[in-house]
């Protein structure tokens, strides 16, 4: 160590003073790649194994469900639909075999009156996925706006909005959704989704309000106000982009619970109704068939479980990507 000191002492004062710049020179930082926050988050997300697996599985399920029956003019790859009866294609058991691999005529079997169960389950999946995503988007939008307004403006606006939110929270979700579902025509899927979206936003509103409350005390918001920035510009340009982590993570959780909610509603009879089908409706119809035709009961449940599980894992991966501190060691 003493050798180092002697060497440095022989440099000129000026050179040695510059050599001990505590701050890094931006110019030689040009050698490093410049990472925006978005890039950092993306990298962390793609490293999360659970989330990646879940993302793959979910994509596969969604693709399978939507392409099997065709989109618009493009025909699907599954020859049977969920309306026709197929009495002459063998017994009702599933023809799917894992080893040796064979799909057969009816991989998920046939239901009690002879419809192809694979097509039924795919249709149910389609309905549930569409509803879940629409609900997710609607609820996120409503919740974010209400939460942001309440958290930023405070005062009487906050009181009103939060009391309204509390009112909606107090009523058990399933109950409220049941009433609204009953009131809306079960045949219009989009209307149902709209109605559901209007009741599940409360959790998001609370969380966004909390984030906005703490963000608005940060100094860059003070600086923006001191410059004279208008309120809504502050909210949309400064506060919400910094709350995006919470919003996105909760949006995925919302979607997961929306799936469960919709299937539960359909199970009870207040959601999607015949002649349309939903995974929850399928389970409700065949719950007593567990001993005689178990496949009718298992397949829809497994699909609900798989979709919800995947969405939850993706949400967890997103949460870790946005806030890497949150890892148990």
């Amino acid at each position: 160590m003493s050798d180092d000191t002697t060497n440095e002492e022989t440099m000129s004062e000026q050179q040695s003073a510059e050599a001990f710049e505590v701050e890094e020179n931006l110019e030689d930082a040009a050698g490093h790649r410049s990472y925006s926050q978005g890039t950092l988050i993306r990298r962390r997300f793609f490293r999360h194994r659970g989330a990646m697996v879940a993302l793959t599985v979910l994509t596969l399920i969604v693709l399978m469900a939507f392409t099997s029956a065709g989109i618009g003019p493009i025909p699907g790859w599954w020859p049977k639909n969920f309306i026709d009866l197929y009495p002459n294609t063998g017994g009702p058991e599933p023809t799917l075999r894992l080893w040796p691999f064979r799909i057969g005529e009816h991989p998920f079997g046939k239901n009690t009156i002879g419809k192809d169960y694979f097509a039924l389950v795919m249709e149910g999946t389609r309905k549930s996925v569409i509803i879940a995503f629409v609900v997710g988007i609607i609820a996120t939008t409503i919740g974010t706006i209400i939460g942001a307004a309440a958290g930023y403006f405070r005062g009487i606006i906050e009181s009103l909005l939060m009391r309204a939110t509390d009112l909606v929270i107090i009523i058990p979700l399933l109950v409220l959704a049941s009433v609204l579902g009953r009131m809306s025509n079960g045949n219009n899927v989009l209307l149902l989704a709209l109605v559901l979206g209007v009741v599940v936003w409360t959790g998001m509103a609370r969380l966004v309000r909390g984030e906005v409350l703490s963000l608005r005390e940060r100094e860059f918001v003070h600086a923006a106000r001191a410059i004279g920035t208008s309120h809504w510009r502050i909210i949309f340009r400064h506060i919400l982009p910094n709350a995006i982590g919470t919003i996105v993570v909760n949006a995925t959780l919302l979607i997961a619970s929306a799936i469960l909610l919709e299937t539960a509603l359909s199970f009870l009879g207040f959601g999607v109704q015949s002649p349309q089908t939903s995974l929850g409706l399928l389970i409700s119809d065949y719950q007593s068939a567990l001993t005689t035709r178990p496949w009718l009961f298992w397949w829809p449940g497994v699909f609900i479980l798989a979709i919800a599980l995947c969405v939850n894992f993706i949400g967890d991966g997103l949460r870790d990507a946005f806030d890497p501190r949150q890892q148990m060691d």
């Binding site: 926050q37 860059f220 600086a223």
Partner: peptide
């Protein structure tokens, strides 16, 4: 302000931060 980390919006590049007052007015 005091805290250099909290005084700048982490989501905006430096150029946008500095030109913010010009844009607002």
């Amino acid at each position: 302000f005091q805290d250099p980390a909290a005084s700048l919006n982490p989501r905006l590049p430096v150029g946008d931060v500095i030109s913010e007052p010009l844009e607002v007015h």
